[in-house]
Amino acid sequence: MSLSKELIEQKLREKFSGENIVFTEYRDELTISFDKKVVVEVCRFLKDDDELQFKLCEDVTAIDWARRKNRFTVVYHIYSLKNNFRLSLKADVDESDCSIDSVSSIWKTANWEEREAYDMYGIKFNNHPDLRRMYMPEEFEYHPLRKDFPLMGIPGSNPLPKK
């Protein structure tokens, strides 16, 4: 018996009645967008609710929209092993306040995923236990997956290690 989209919608609307939560569906996948202030509460609710049980966090990443008002969107893909149901969560982040609360206290997986997103997009995750760069060296100043970072790289930005 799989989980119905209506049930998730109804539960979230009940719990977060004051918040602006948008439900969209594309190619049979449900996406929930909300304000970045409630990200921790929504995620904790989705994980801890007895009927939903989204216990597996598959992926945390971000999208750089380049010219939009809210430049970044942080995207979470979570999975409910109990219901065999995948859900995408989205929260917009603006460049002027480029930070969002970390969900690594809810899913331990998010630790590295958020570090990767920080490395690639420069989005700061508040309350993250160990926010270092994932792939690039610690001295690197740029964030490579931002749209304004050129494909060929910036010459001299990544110096060779000293002998």
Partner: peptide, 12 residues
């Protein structure tokens, strides 16, 4: 420590 084989496939 990761990143020694980072080729930037997502950027590519």
């Amino acid at each position: 420590e990761l990143g020694y084989l980072h080729r930037g496939y997502e950027k590519m």
